[in-house]
């Protein structure tokens, strides 16, 4: 049921921020007031049906002008402080696509541990430093989400834009194909290694309002939580892992549940360990 709920929320995360369908029919962009709102998703604002603005594109735009967008940083911080990386796990359309691609049968691999640090370098270098130095949005130039949601529809719809295509477009296509291919073999490669938005949200996983709770008394350390985890982590070992997407797939196990940062005993009173319980008359272990 939770799995189905996540699929439904991912579908809504793809549809609702891209609900301006006249954009596809008339080959125009939505220019209404909602474009002033940054979506907490990696959702391309060049998509003809996009209603909201891309936060990473906004950060680059301000960095290219020598500024910091307090509005975009604040929006992402408020969302991160509330739910951590939950939007990555439950709403992001590109994350949903990678989840689906991994379901293809075939050779599977795991991502090296060091690659998780790449996303912070991408955030610092491609979103802030290089746009500041070159006055150009370099992450957007390479972004596979932009290729999928912005470049491909526009090149298909508009002859004018088709005539302006040059080498960069094909580089973007190659990057998109690389991540699509890799996602059939590795769980969410883009989210874990590259996504600058995920890098921002992962900074909040330790202190966000929503937290994952683990019950050591009922956990058998079977490792099934890692098998079903879309990013290959062990929530029983680290509940606030920066990679954790808070997708809640692991909460199918009764030893894991969603709680809040203020909830000290989410599983009720602490159970008496079995070894102690057997030696204490009248005590029972869960």
């Amino acid at each position: 049921m939770r799995f189905l709920a996540r699929r439904i929320s991912q579908a809504l995360g793809a549809i609702l921020p891209n609900a301006w369908l006249p954009g596809f029919l008339s080959a125009t962009l939505y220019q209404g007031p909602l474009k002033g709102v940054c979506t907490p998703l990696l959702n391309c604002y060049a998509c003809p049906s996009a209603l909201l603005s891309c936060p990473i594109g906004t950060l680059q735009h301000f960095a290219a002008g020598g500024n910091v967008s307090w509005y975009a940083v604040g929006t992402l911080s408020v969302v991160g402080a509330s739910v951590g990386r939950m939007t990555c796990g439950t709403l992001c359309p590109f994350g949903a696509l990678q989840d689906l691609l991994y379901k293809f049968r075939g050779w599977k691999a795991s991502l090296p541990h060091w690659t998780r640090y790449l996303r912070y370098a991408v955030l610092a270098v491609l979103v802030f430093i290089i746009p500041y130095l070159t006055r150009e949005n370099w992450f957007s130039k390479l972004c596979p989400v932009g290729t999928l949601m912005g470049a491909l529809p526009w090149v298909t719809m508009s002859a004018d834009i088709r005539s302006m295509v040059h080498g960069l477009f094909w580089v973007k296509i190659a990057i998109l194909l690389f991540f699509i291919t890799t996602a059939t073999m590795v769980k969410r490669p883009f989210c874990r290694a590259i996504c600058p938005l995920g890098a921002i949200f992962s900074l909040f996983n330790k202190s966000s309002f929503l937290q994952l709770a683990w019950d050591p008394d009922t956990c058998t350390r079977c490792g099934k939580c890692r098998e079903i985890c879309p990013v290959d982590i062990r929530p029983d070992r680290n509940r606030t892992d920066p990679d954790c997407l808070r997708c809640l797939d692991c909460t199918r196990c009764p030893s894991l549940k969603l709680t809040t940062v203020f909830h000290r005993q989410p599983f009720g009173e602490t159970a008496v360990p079995a070894t102690v319980a057997s030696s204490v008359p009248g005590a029972s272990a869960r």
């Binding site: 962009l29 939505y30 220019q31 007031p33 474009k35 002033g36 709102v37 940054c38 391309c44 604002y45 060049a46 996009a50 909201l52 603005s53 891309c54 594109g57 906004t58 735009h61 301000f62 967008s69 307090w70 509005y71 975009a72 150009e136 949005n137 370099w138 957007s140 130039k141 972004c143 932009g146 290729t147 912005g150 470049a151 526009w154 090149v155 834009i161 302006m164 295509v165 040059h166 960069l168 477009f169 580089v171 973007k172 296509i173």
Partner: peptide, 20 residues
């Protein structure tokens, strides 16, 4: 800043489309 985000979002991002 919302006004600037709105103006930036209302223009087609040429970098995203791969022609800028």
């Amino acid at each position: 800043e919302i006004a600037e985000v709105l103006v930036n979002g209302a223009l087609l991002c040429l970098s995203c489309v791969g022609i800028g």
